[in-house]
Design a protein around this nucleic acid. Sequence first.
DNA 1: GGTTGTTGCGCAAGCGTTTGCGTTCAGTTT
DNA 2: AAACTGAACGCAAACGCTTGCGCAACAACC
Lengths: 339, 339
Amino acid sequence: MTVSITDVARAAGVSASTVSRALRGRPGVSDEVRAQITAVAEQLGYTASRSASSLASGRTFTIGVVAPYIGRWFFGTVLDAAEQVFSAAGYDVLLYNLGSAEARKRFFTKMPVRKRVDAVLSLLIPDEEESAALRSLGVPLASTVGGARPGFTVVGIDDRAGAESAVRHLVNLGHRRIGMISGASGPLHWTTPVDRRAAYLHVLAEAGIEPDPALEADGDYTVEGGERAMTELLAASRPPTAVFAQSDEMAMGALRALRRHRLRVPEDVSVVGFDDHELADVVGLTTVAQPVAGQGAEAARLLLRQLDEQDAVPRGRVEMPIRLVLRETTAPPRPRGPQ
Amino acid sequence: MTVSITDVARAAGVSASTVSRALRGRPGVSDEVRAQITAVAEQLGYTASRSASSLASGRTFTIGVVAPYIGRWFFGTVLDAAEQVFSAAGYDVLLYNLGSAEARKRFFTKMPVRKRVDAVLSLLIPDEEESAALRSLGVPLASTVGGARPGFTVVGIDDRAGAESAVRHLVNLGHRRIGMISGASGPLHWTTPVDRRAAYLHVLAEAGIEPDPALEADGDYTVEGGERAMTELLAASRPPTAVFAQSDEMAMGALRALRRHRLRVPEDVSVVGFDDHELADVVGLTTVAQPVAGQGAEAARLLLRQLDEQDAVPRGRVEMPIRLVLRETTAPPRPRGPQ
DNA sequence: GGTTGTTGCGCAAGCGTTTGCGTTCAGTTT
DNA sequence: AAACTGAACGCAAACGCTTGCGCAACAACC
């Protein structure tokens, strides 16, 4: 049916081992024979069976990527960039979309990547148990987003610095009642929301502003959540004149809520987001930009390097640059409160 | 090092074949022995090697998904939904991101999925040669988006009907100079842009409006492209009073261009998009909605059914519902032209 | 012309499963 | 009691590669 290595060997008048060595660029084959084998293989349309070759060699030339919510812009963009690096290097990627709690549990109990991948890139933060399970695979591990775990190479950003610049920008504009839409919930055990919240509180303290629990709401990292959270904040007895949303998607939800309340941005309320979503520019959102695709590509590259060097030692932590992007959703507060 | 089937067999005091049958629910094993084997396997943390089992059985329990631009909302969402269906059914997904021409060429010449997948889901439209290559894999094939190809189960929408409803909406509002931002370029050989353009021309003819080539521009299916295209249209001697963009991303780009030109939407120019992007609601974009995640999930389900029925006959074409969603970017034209 | 090196290639033993077939054995049927 | 059942299990041969080792053949040294 399908052409195997012995078919090529027979057609070329050599042994299967020689075909194997020739096609993979291994030494021990003369140039003429190698050229002839290559030609024959090409003509027969031969592709080595990955199952067989990985069974024999132990290498799979496959990278496992586990990610939550790949439909969201952030994760989709990271995945896109990482995949390009992997496939350019000849690796395939096995994708595991762990958005739901069940999917996540199923993955970590069945561990379908065992013996199937040479490395894994995680776009979510595994908890202690989960990262132990990943380490037990005995392959290089990398992670984007969030805090470091032992055994992982992680590339990320300085979440605190980013959030500080966003909130400080609002303070500098003269705002005193600054709300925050966070994204603490969900099954992601990441440090990002925690770090960004700490930064928010730090800047408030720095400016001598008393934090007000009524000015914090959970937006679940979604547009709808951001809308709900903004609606909540507006219902406070003294609503904020400015809001820091921990993601652009939540910031956009907040914009929608403000529009529905007939409040003008930035005249009545200022909004600053985080990520520099591809559509942030369309809505004129002020935000702190991070290199999203860059993080995916960099993590992929570091993983490949570990693979090449046969060296399972993680590369530590790499920090990517961030910067505040000023657009049209922030301005000084009006002399009197927005209401 | 790692525990194999013979380790389990030895520990349970049976042969490897019995372990294999027991763990996969095959007949020929008594209930007691099966229970004991299951317990031993669990305790040893045994997971069967996929390479070995697919080498022996010919089945891989893996689905190949080829997609362009997985970072874009549309494809990311389809992929997300499809992956959930596949992994819930116990299949892994091998992802091939074929955004660039090189990646695409590399994929179709090396055909890395050969002998690696049980089926393939394509989120792009292969040309004649490429679809022949896919058919030669001898596995069930499905595709979302675009026109049917022999051998493929395809789930999609009625692009003509969708585009017609968008353009007819503009006509009904009283517009006569209606522009279109299309997305004909790029390495995707799909019929979508063609169908939507045909619908546009059809509705114009229906309304007795003479089509004007100066009112069509290519937006490349991106935000930036949409912005450029809108800028072009505005430079026409008699610019449009309304624009139909073939995707929401291009429509958003158009909105940005209009804002930069200090034109108001919908007072000066009406805009209607296509897709119902998750952020369309945020910017108040009128658009024709299609079930994006639904298409991914449905295509995945159909593929799995073909797999179960050992039946490589494609399921033909499934059409998903569409509907026009009215928001705030469309209104009747002003009595006089916008300039 | 014998020893030592190289180079180029084939042999065969795996890698960890699956599966057709053969064997055993307890339980029926004549 | 002999013969015939199934059911439950083991044997061993694949599946298609990779790779350590062996063995020619030939070149290069004293």
